[in-house]
Design a protein around this nucleic acid. Structure first.
Lengths: 332, 332
DNA sequence: TGTAAAAATGTAAGCGTTTACATAATTTGG
DNA sequence: CCAAATTATGTAAACGCTTACATTTTTACA
């Protein structure tokens, strides 16, 4: 059993109210009694009961992050960004991730809503109607992390996928002189993936390069998918000179296939990716890719959420887009 | 404001006690009233207040994991393992990680002890006296994840670093025929690192290969450290034919240096690692390394902790060592 | 020194549950 | 049909803390 303020009160010969006030540094407690109580608390190894405090204050000072199962490459970075901001504002962070054992975010979101956290940052690769309803029904503030939210009513933070893909494509054309640029798509339901494709197409159009639909192949954001897509592209009669994979994982898959075929990057075929996951730095040659400032996403999301929590209701939903950067490697 | 059992009680014309019992499926509540109350709860979108329940039950059904800042490569796997077991036992998992903003695990452990979680899984790269005391003073059950715990009084789960390094070294000697095997150490304070070194040395001895101290160089588990160490080893007059890096990150550093020098792996120099981090699969040629079953560690740790929580006090501290495997790539 | 204002402390209610104990309603069996 | 046993419900305390309000103590000043 833990020490409670009641026991401190007894030892100090004061009421529990005074103890509570002293420990919370309430200005109208005599300095001497404050000191007495603080010392006593220290001696007795007292540690306040978070749960009891939360019950009366109706505030946990904890925010939750819910992460999807797939592709955990950048989660640590996001968490770090969130935790940084949270810590500065005296909040704690509660991370939960869905995985094979639980098929939806429902259980987690449900749990979190039970007065466990003050708000949650929800990262979703795609958003179903079911989840949409869930979010609407949830009472606590939510900030979405994703490429593009069609939920106007919920604040969101995401990277500018369109701009990222556009910049990369433009870079390939204008700085590197490529014009035979192929593209490996992501999953159709993934909104990030869709916007990356759009950016790619837009850049081609703006540069007056016709879109070759043979060069736009399906992918699923996995290594395997990248391998399949690369094989397809490399077996075409009219081969592209660059493969722009919608994420780094698939780019890695391309590397493998290209390697197996005895071709060299970038001479025989160039490869570029998107995400700048840690692994991309270790691909040989180093991958040229779109840098996604993951920690920045985390920080922005946390700031947004805390803002909502502090000035509740006054702020209307915001949608923040974070600009990506270009990491120029040796792969093109 | 959320719905409470009080409001349900009013609507149902029963006392809050009955509502509480009905919702908890207490056997001596009439089936008809149970139904009534359950329906009402559903309609009113009631969701129990976790905090209030915890206050009286003194059980949160949440376990915490505290992760260190460094090298987050395998955290997702560990978390997954923990969460799997936790979920099966109706527990939730609370992840926190130390990072630059907070220099010790103190703040987190402190927070977690405040009745926030029922127990914690603590992952520590090294264990200082300060932390040791902290652990001893903490009232809630703790399970340590690390290579070797000198804390007999606290249960722990870890991989068998000695066996892993021994097996790898032995493999290099007996299966691959190497005898000029160098080793890049990890940080001196890191207990995993120390045991890996021991395993390496023991295998050499058992194979009657004299230890060449020139071939045992310092490292710090980072890429940079690997680069430095590799440079050192490759500038020796009497060069080794294999580099055994105490972790994969340093092995990656070796790859870089070897690449820059225009040498090839494994012909000019072989490289092997330890950890089997995802990246190791993408190094070219694929890295031969020691596989650490990270999710297994998470599962075991969670099982151990839950066991302690359920049969509190009855079980004495256990120390589980998990056997590693060998991933044979093309790097030796 | 007396009194009003200011400062310090105490009292008690309340946060939303659970649960031991008390009471009321129902069933059972002689 | 009534008492006893059983079943269902209610009452109220408790969990550990915060805080509005009441009360006491100290301070300031005429």
């Amino acid at each position: 059993m833990s020490i409670t303020i009641k026991e401190i009160a007894e030892k100090a010969n004061v009421s529990i109210a005074t103890v509570s006030r002293a420990l919370n540094d309430n200005p109208n407690v005599k300095e001497s009694t404050k000191e007495l109580i603080r010392n006593l608390a220290q001696e007795m190894n007292y540690s306040p009961n978070f749960v009891a405090r939360t019950l009366v204050k109706k505030k946990t000072n904890v925010i939750g992050i819910i992460l999807p199962e797939v592709g955990g490459e950048f989660f640590p970075e996001i968490i770090k960004g969130v935790d940084e901001v949270a810590y500065q504002n005296e909040y704690h962070v509660f991370v939960a991730s869905s995985h094979s054992e639980r098929n939806t975010v429902e259980s987690i979101l449900g749990f979190m809503s039970k007065s466990m956290v003050d708000g949650v940052i929800l990262m979703l690769p795609s958003i179903t109607d079911h989840i949409r309803n869930l979010i609407k029904r949830t009472r606590i503030p939510i900030v979405l992390i994703n490429g593009y939210s069609k939920m106007e009513e919920v604040s969101s933070v995401g990277i500018d996928n369109f701009q990222g893909a556009y910049t990369m494509t433009n870079f390939l054309i204008q700085n590197k002189g490529y014009d035979k640029i192929s593209f490996i798509k992501g999953p159709d339901i993934n909104s990030d993936a869709k916007l990356r494709l759009k950016g790619y197409k837009a850049a081609l159009e703006d540069n007056k390069i016709p879109i070759n639909h043979e060069w736009i192949v399906d992918g699923d954001f996995t290594i395997k998918g990248g391998e399949l897509a690369a094989s397809r592209l490399l077996s075409l009669i009219n081969k592209p000179s660059v493969i722009f994979a919608a994420n780094d994982m698939m780019a890695a898959g391309c590397y493998r296939v290209i390697d197996q075929l005895g071709l060299t990057i970038p001479d025989d075929i160039a490869v570029v990716g998107f995400d700048h996951i840690p692994m991309s730095e270790f691909l040989n040659p180093k991958l040229t890719t779109v840098h996604v400032p993951t920690d920045e996403i985390g920080r922005k999301a946390a700031k947004l959420l805390l803002d909502i929590l502090e000035n509740s209701e006054t702020t209307k939903p915001q949608h923040i887009k974070i600009t990506t950067g270009l990491i120029v490697g040796k792969s093109c």
